[in-house]
């Protein structure tokens, strides 16, 4: 298994979880795929809810009750759809990413760029080869941008928050001093 510092910049998940869940990203368990899928669904549903609320509010006929009703209808119809497409993307992406980690035996930004491109291609497969190439390019470019941002951020953060000498004297933190809600991932 590689060093943890290396794992911290692994992919979208590395970007989004940044240092929380990537504790054992090396072992790339199948649960990570489920985790990514559900996380993507939640993200898409919440984000879609916000955007569709605004859109439904603006497109409804005048009158406050109409606007509220339109907003609610838009959320109920569109937000789950958006969450579903996010989940499909996230699940397929994570699956290919884990597969590449297994096949290539190393974790680097190329894994997620390749899996982004392959995800785009696979999801556009029913629209013909031209659409596949376009979608793959889009996925690859997007993931490359995200990877680049993640790497830049990691570099910036490591220069800004150095491993503090102010904590060097403290005893090793007990299992978790402040058990917060998001820590379940440590045990998987």
């Amino acid at each position: 298994c590689q060093s943890r510092e290396h794992c911290d910049k692994a992919g979208v998940s590395g970007l989004i979880y940044q240092g929380t869940s990537t504790n054992d990203c090396c072992s790339c368990s199948p649960w990570r795929i489920v985790d990514d899928c559900g996380g993507a669904f939640t993200m898409g549903a919440i984000g879609g809810g916000i955007f569709q609320a605004v859109k439904g509010f603006r497109n409804a006929p005048a009158g406050m009750s109409h606007r509220m009703k339109g907003s609610m209808t838009a959320i109920k119809t569109r937000a789950p759809q958006l969450g579903g497409s996010f989940a499909v993307w996230g699940g397929l992406f994570s699956m290919i990413d884990c597969g590449l980690v297994k096949v290539r035996g190393k974790e680097d930004p190329w894994n997620s760029i390749t899996s982004g491109a392959m995800t785009g291609a696979i999801l556009a497969a029913r629209n013909g080869p031209v659409a596949m190439v376009g979608s793959a390019a889009m996925g690859g470019i997007l993931l490359a941008l995200i990877e680049g941002a993640g790497i830049l951020l990691t570099r910036f953060a490591s220069s800004q928050f150095p491993t503090g000498p102010q904590f060097a004297e403290e005893p090793a933190p007990a299992p978790m001093p402040t058990p917060s809600f998001g820590d379940y991932r440590q045990y998987q």
């Binding site: 970007l15 240092g19 504790n23 503090g164 904590f167 060097a168 933190p173």
Partner: peptide
Amino acid sequence: VAVGPYGQTQPSCFDRVKMGFMM
């Protein structure tokens, strides 16, 4: 500020959300 598994300070939840938005 909680002490993370790496022995360094972890930013608070709001900081992380802010950082996510910026990125």
